[in-house]
Amino acid sequence: MPRQSRPTPRAYWLCLVVISHARARLECALGLFERRRDAPPISVLHFLGVAYEQLGETERTIAQYQQLLAVTTACGESVYRSYTLRAMAIVTWRQGKPARASELIEQALRLSRQVNNPRTTARASRPLPGWSPTDRTPRVPWS
């Protein structure tokens, strides 16, 4: 099995700069939609949540994903809602709440099966590292 290389500190910081820039642009776009009193595209809300998550801004990530869940539920959209449920499961699992993460993963999987989109179902069914649906106890995969 090939050995995975770790990113260099320079590459890591470059990624953070790019993500920070993307976050600023997405926040700007969101502000524009709010000023126009127009609903932002769901993709803007989704990628802003992803940017917050990648930058380690947990509270903002959760708030963004909750807003996205409210919007997708209200308009009956299912694909981004299943993506968001899985993303929320990851954030919740990282907070040390495996039971809640399991519930969110199961919701995402049920929803993705209703959509009948193989890509969405495969993404939702991809387990979290160390996640076990039977005992709901997180295990560190490298221990």
Rank of each mutant, 00 (worst) to 15 (best):
E59D: 13
L26S: 00
L68P: 03
E106V: 09
R36V: 09
C15N: 15
Y83V: 04
R60V: 06
V17A: 14
C15K: 14
F33H: 11
I19D: 06
R60G: 07
L26V: 07
I19C: 06
H21K: 14
V50M: 07
P41N: 01
L30K: 05
C28I: 11
V79C: 13
R25Y: 11
P98G: 05
I19R: 03
R23F: 00
E34S: 10
I42P: 02
Y52W: 04
Q95K: 10
H21M: 15
A89R: 03
A87V: 09
E77R: 03
A99I: 12
V79R: 14
T73H: 13
E59W: 06
F33L: 05
G49Y: 02
S20P: 06
Q107W: 06
V18P: 08
P98T: 03
I105Y: 09
E77I: 02
R36Y: 11
L45R: 01
C15M: 14
V71F: 10
L26G: 00
V79E: 13
L16Y: 13
Q107H: 06
C75L: 13
R23T: 04
I19K: 03
C28Y: 12
A22S: 14
A63Y: 07
L111K: 02
E106A: 13
L48N: 01
L45S: 05
L109F: 10
F33D: 07
T92Q: 05
A74F: 01
R25L: 15
A101T: 00
Y52M: 02
A24S: 09
W93M: 10
A29T: 07
A70G: 01
L48C: 00
L69A: 09
L48E: 02
A63N: 08
H21T: 15
A89F: 00
G56E: 02
L30G: 05
T92N: 01
